[in-house]
Amino acid sequence: AAAATPRPAAAPSVNLTVNFASGSAELTPQATRTLDELGRALASAELSAFRFRVEGHTDTVGDAAQNQSLSERRAAAVVQYLTSRHGIAPSRLQAVGMGESAPLVPTGDQVPEPRNRRVQVVNIGA
């Protein structure tokens, strides 16, 4: 009989979304409250060994190149906040702009959808 191979434990996850105003990469008061919670979590012993991808997203308003740039600025704003305010090592955070390529809520072109203007934080392992 073959021995069962234990499955590795799932990495601790952080599932949160930071929303932005249309056309903006400026953190709102609500965003900073969310990021303060995230900063405390990332500094915890449970998550201190893990790295995270910080994915910036936009809605479909504007052209694709502008949205790509905006999504990169959003991700960078979150990384900058976490490193400067919470002392999270920059090597643990990878900022990535996704543009309008991965909407949370699928819409047609040029549709303002606040839920798509966001940054998502994804645990990418140790």
Rank of each mutant, 00 (worst) to 15 (best):
D36A: 15
Q68P: 00
Q66T: 10
R51H: 15
Q68G: 06
A1Q: 11
T58I: 01
G39S: 05
L104Q: 08
P8H: 10
A2G: 08
L82F: 01
G23L: 04
A95I: 05
E55Y: 05
A89W: 02
T17R: 13
E72Q: 12
T58G: 03
G87F: 09
Q68L: 12
R7Q: 14
G23N: 06
P114H: 08
A25I: 07
T107A: 08
A126D: 14
V96N: 00
A75R: 00
E46W: 03
L35Y: 03
T28W: 08
S91T: 14
I88R: 00
S101V: 08
A102S: 12
R40A: 15
G62T: 04
I124D: 11
G62R: 06
G39T: 00
L38N: 02
V14Q: 08
T34K: 11
D59W: 02
I88G: 00
L27C: 01
P114A: 13
E55P: 03
V61A: 11
V14L: 15
A21P: 02
E100Q: 13
A89Q: 13
A10N: 07
G62S: 12
E100M: 11
S91Q: 13
R74C: 01
G39D: 02
A126H: 09
A25H: 04
G39H: 01
P6A: 14
L70P: 02
H57S: 13
Y81Q: 10
F52V: 04
T83C: 14
V96Y: 01
L38E: 02
V18N: 03
G125I: 07
F52A: 02
T60N: 05
L16G: 01
R115K: 07
T60V: 08
R117L: 09
D59L: 03
N123L: 05
A3I: 10
D59R: 05
R118C: 05
A41L: 09
R118M: 05
E37S: 14
L70G: 01
V105P: 01
N67W: 00
R118K: 11
G23Y: 02
A2S: 12
P90A: 11
T58D: 04
S91V: 12
A1F: 10
V54G: 00
A64W: 07
V111M: 11
A4C: 10
E100L: 06
A126S: 15
P106T: 11
L93F: 02
V79P: 00
P6T: 14
G99V: 06
V105A: 09
E113L: 06
T32S: 10
A102K: 13
I88K: 00
N123V: 03
Q110Y: 08
D109K: 15
F20N: 02
F20M: 04
E37G: 11
